[in-house]
Design a protein around this nucleic acid. Structure first.
Lengths: 222, 222
DNA sequence: ATGATTATATTGTTGAACAAAGCATGATAA
DNA sequence: TTATCATGCTTTGTTCAACAATATAATCAT
């Protein structure tokens, strides 16, 4: 029997990847503050792994963009900047819009989109806004999955992780996530109605508005 | 004085990154055959580094897509497949064409494009077709640099590394690289003439034809 | 020859050790 | 007092040796 305290949602092929997943959640969940330094010795002891293994974890998360590595100084939780948010939304527009425009409404990923909308709607009632945010992200990851392009899918996964890091920094999660549930539902409906081009137009609006909201929330932080 | 046999072109912030650069060249240069297994112990001894450091190198190159890691089995030089080539060209179209279309002809990266064309033209006279290939890739990396998007630039760097791996697998490098020197020159001229849209159209043709040529060469291998 | 079982080699992970780089402290000189 | 430099401490970078876990190869029975 597995220890119920550690659900181990992913089989975690290697120990390093398992720890990486845990750390990733801690970062996107806000347990680790952006800019914070992660001491090798301390964290290794805390996680009960060796320094060498932790170093591998660091390499993984650094490549994902949620940690930053400064030679001979250590690793830090990445600090999202206005520039990075602009860049992220630019990449999102570039990838998501064509992905949706070329989509075949019968694609398997459409089911993922549907499930994501349903989950967001549920979590809204609790309410669990951070969860809603995750579900919304899953919706957009599914859009990229419509392309069947392994490289785009992997790249977008990183982008999403970075964006979640930025979200974690901001307050007012309700304002950031709630308005987009019906929008995602609309996009999905339009796609299922056999109008990918129309869905893509809606998506573009979505991204523009979301970007503006995020930047405003970011500006409020000073 | 540095050992002239090891030019160490990049300062190599860390030892691992330096070794990674060397290994990367060996792979894209064809010294290491796709599918070949890289033994940790043997390679570590050969490169005169520890197994742990070599492991870090492996992680770096695996993330770049030129090595493949199978748990508990080892790492192998990635084997380009027809599917991966299709995917790579799809990504190239998605990123490069809009990048060029939105370009400002006075951007600093235009100089890089110019330099790449010049270098390819020179190397053509030697002739050094592998070098011509590298220069052509540099041309397209410069196109992506027109976007000023750090994420796109980094992503595209990986894509290029993978494509070079595929090129290394194929024979007839002249056929694969020579026809594209004048095409790149044309694209550059059109951009400098203040017609980014026209340049983008040329680029799209370029990518379609290049993809076809690569796939044909790949099919000839069986 | 085929399938199961035992060796053997390789990877996964650890802990300790030392070198090298950065950081803090305090002494010295202007 | 302030600035500069020397010193020591802390942390990262890298190596080494060892053992556990897993896959590959070899052996043996049928």
């Amino acid at each position: 029997m597995a220890d119920p305290r550690e659900p181990a949602p992913s089989p975690a092929a290697s120990l390093a990847e398992g720890i990486a997943a845990r750390l990733r959640d801690q970062v996107t969940g806000g347990a680790l503050v952006p800019g914070q330094r992660l001491s090798e010795a301390r964290l290794a002891a805390e996680l009960d792994i060796s320094r060498n293994t932790l170093r591998e974890v660091f390499r993984l998360l650094t490549r994902e963009g949620i940690l930053r590595h400064e030679p001979n100084r250590g690793v830090f939780v990445a600090v999202p900047s206005m520039a990075s948010i602009l860049d992220i939304y630019r990449v999102r527009r570039l990838i998501e819009v064509p992905a949706l425009a070329q989509a075949w409404p019968g694609h398997a990923a459409v089911a993922r989109m549907r499930a994501a909308v349903a989950r967001a709607t549920e979590l809204q009632r609790i309410p669990d806004w951070r969860g809603v945010g995750s579900a919304n992200m899953e919706f957009h990851a599914a859009i990229v999955a419509l392309t069947d392009s392994p490289r785009l899918i992997q790249f977008f996964t990183q982008i999403i992780a970075e964006l979640r890091l930025a979200f974690g920094l901001l307050d007012s999660p309700e304002l950031l996530h709630r308005p987009y549930i019906p929008r995602n539902a609309e996009i999905l409906a339009r796609l299922e109605a056999g109008d990918p081009a129309g869905a893509a137009r809606l998506l573009e609006d979505y991204l523009n508005q979301s970007e503006r909201a995020v930047l405003e929330a970011f500006a409020r932080l000073g």
